[in-house]
Amino acid sequence: MPMDPEIAALLRQFGLDGPGPDTPPSVAEMRAGNRMLSLAVAPDPPLAVGSVADGRVAGVPVRVYRPEASAGPSATVVFFHGGGFIVGDLDTHEGVCRRLCRDLGAVVVSVAYRLAPEFPFPAGFDDCVAVTSHVADSIADYGGGKLAVAGDSAGAGLAAGVALAFRDEGRPLAAQLLAYPCTDLSGGGSHPSRVENATGYLLTTAEVENDIRLYLGDDAAAGGRAPASPLLAGDFAGLAPAVIGCGECDPLRDEGLAYADALRAAGVVVRVHRYPGLIHGFLNFDSKSAAVEAAVGELYGEFGELLG
């Protein structure tokens, strides 16, 4: 499948169109590279919202984006950034959160959960549950409207896990937005996209496998069950409605589509999209590619409809 030409040109510009390194980069190098690319493609100037403030919720660093003042309640979205559970931070997804806030008129709480390998599973997941639970208990302080979760890549996997936890606790969520979610950390799944898109599309299957190894640490068996692997939860009934978007040129494509199938089979309302030519991480490229702009507009628009 040919890559979107505007994304392909962008990768050439940053020297990211060739084969990966012979030896895996260090964690510090991974984080620096991810941060460099994310900040380089961010909208300039940043999208305007009502206010942005850093703080802590349940002891976890967060950044809260609030829309321009409105007469009634605003929806609240708790957002978990991508980065393979290893990289990413509040800054790398600033543009994504600003657009969510602006397009949905929602309060967005971006979560700086703990990262592996320093803090392997379940530390980051526990942070995500703790922040979402606090926001749910204090919803009047965060818009007062419906509550939803969202994320991309590893963050989408975390959002799916939080949605499962909330369902199990009988706590309502209005919706979940899962962009190219990482849903199967077992190593035993048969996902053709892991082979089809193993190299040549920025994220490689080798990098996915390395990230999973670092994330699970000494508890590799955790990848064989939820919440680390939402696809393996077994019971999906009663989960929040979902909007799921996957890029055709992504090694994680098929596990995201499989999760959509599992939700739909359980009677969950699902809107799923498979975008031709798009690669992993495409949310960050909306200001650089017309195809991504259209995809992001569609995903956020459908997510907003679920939030009313």
Rank of each mutant, 00 (worst) to 15 (best):
Val111Asp: 11
Asp211Trp: 13
Leu177Glu: 05
Gly200Arg: 04
Gly223Lys: 00
Arg102Ala: 15
Gly256Ala: 05
Ala220Gly: 06
Val269His: 14
Gly281Tyr: 03
Phe236Met: 08
Gly189Asp: 05
Ser229Phe: 13
His280Ile: 01
Ser193Lys: 04
Gly155Asn: 03
Asp235Trp: 11
Pro227Asp: 11
Ile279Glu: 07
Arg98Phe: 13
Gly245Leu: 01
Asp152His: 07
Ala179Pro: 00
Cys128Gly: 05
Ala290Lys: 09
Gly88Arg: 09
Pro230Asn: 14
Gly188Glu: 10
Gly83Trp: 02
Ala295Asp: 15
Val135Cys: 04
Val77Leu: 15
Glu293Lys: 09
Ala221Arg: 06
Ala69Lys: 03
Ala226Val: 07
Ala266Asn: 08
Gly170Glu: 10
Arg194Gln: 03
Arg253Leu: 05
Arg171Asp: 08
Ser38Cys: 13
Gly144Asp: 12
Ala106Leu: 01
Gln176Arg: 11
Phe236Leu: 13
Pro46Ile: 03
Cys101Leu: 07
His134Gly: 03
Val135Ile: 11
Asn197Tyr: 04
Leu203Asp: 03
Leu214Trp: 03
Val149Thr: 02
Asp141Gln: 12
Ala233Ser: 01
Ser138Leu: 02
Arg98Tyr: 14
Val208Lys: 01
Gly224His: 10
Tyr65Phe: 06
Ala116Arg: 08
Ser153Thr: 04
Asp4Trp: 08
Gly145Phe: 02
Gly157Met: 02
Gly188Phe: 00
Phe282Ala: 09
Gly267His: 04
Phe282Asn: 00
Gln176Asn: 09
Val107Tyr: 07
Arg102Ile: 01
Pro120Asp: 06
Ala140Val: 13
Val270Glu: 05
His81Cys: 01
Val109Ile: 15
Val268Trp: 08
Arg56Pro: 03
Asn210Cys: 10
Gly304Asp: 02
Tyr113Asp: 09
Thr92Leu: 07
Asp103Pro: 00
Arg271Thr: 15
Val109Gly: 12
Glu298Tyr: 09
Glu6Arg: 07
Val41Pro: 08
Asp89His: 14
Glu118Ala: 09
Ala116Asn: 02
His191Gln: 15
Tyr142Gln: 01
Ser287Trp: 12
Leu307Trp: 02
Ala58Trp: 09
Asp261Ala: 12
Leu257Met: 15
Ala148Met: 06
Ile244Met: 04
Leu178Arg: 03
Val87Met: 12
Ala240His: 07
Ala258Thr: 04
Asp168Pro: 06
Arg63Glu: 10
Ala69Pro: 11
Lys146Glu: 09
Val129Met: 06
Ser70Met: 13
Glu169Tyr: 05
Pro5Leu: 00
Phe303Pro: 06
Ala260Pro: 04
Glu209Pro: 07
Ala226Gln: 12
Gly277Val: 15
Val49Asn: 02
Leu252Thr: 02
Leu11Asn: 00
Asp137Phe: 14
Met1Lys: 01
Leu232Gly: 02
Val27Gly: 04
Ala242Val: 03
Arg274Ser: 13
Ala116Gly: 14
Ala266Gly: 08
Pro67Val: 15
Gly217Asn: 02
